[in-house]
């Protein structure tokens, strides 16, 4: 599906969520509690068939986190961006491991660098940093006097 029809069908499929056109693909913004429900619908539906999670990351907006999921369909070749707002004080969101196996590693990375807790993740451990690392480096308020070089 091209971007325009995809945007329209997403807007009709999810009338209560905000779906707009981003720079590349349609962008849908949801609350973190809605995630599993939305993903189940996006992946399960024959019209969309978003079976391929090609990127999962997080952005720290200082007031809240945004989990960004880039989804694609290997069948229809269309892509979309799903954004879930996560509370910064209690960063918790459901894990997508049961939908996409690649999420296991990607979520470990996000947990490692942002400290977002993924509920129902089978093996949530630090990935890149050591187990005893203090803090979450990709947060905007992270400061490390030794390892960080300010330009």
């Amino acid at each position: 599906m091209e971007n325009e029809p995809l945007l329209n069908s997403l807007q009709t499929g999810f009338p209560e969520t905000a779906t707009v056109m981003g720079s590349d693909w349609p962008e849908m913004s949801i609350e973190s509690t809605q995630l599993l429900e939305v993903i189940a619908k996006l992946k399960g539906s024959d019209d969309w068939d978003f079976n391929y999670l090609f990127c999962e990351t997080c952005v720290d907006w200082k007031t809240h986190f945004t989990m960004v999921y880039h989804l694609s369909s290997t069948q229809y070749r269309h892509s979309m961006v799903l954004k879930a707002k996560v509370d910064r004080e209690i960063p918790q969101i459901e894990s997508l491991v049961k939908f996409y196996k690649t999420a296991e590693m990607l979520e470990r990375e996000v947990y490692d660098l942002f400290g977002v807790q993924f509920l129902n993740h089978p093996d949530l451990r630090r990935l890149l940093l050591t187990e005893d690392w203090v803090g979450y480096p990709l947060r905007k308020d992270y400061y490390d006097p030794i390892n960080m070089i300010k330009l």
Partner: peptide, 20 residues
């Protein structure tokens, strides 16, 4: 202001560059 994503093929597979 915005978000930009590029998918391209490296020797190992798909590289995604996501700039906010």
């Amino acid at each position: 202001k915005g978000e930009f994503y590029t998918r391209l093929e490296t020797a190992r597979g798909e590289l995604g560059v996501y700039i906010v």
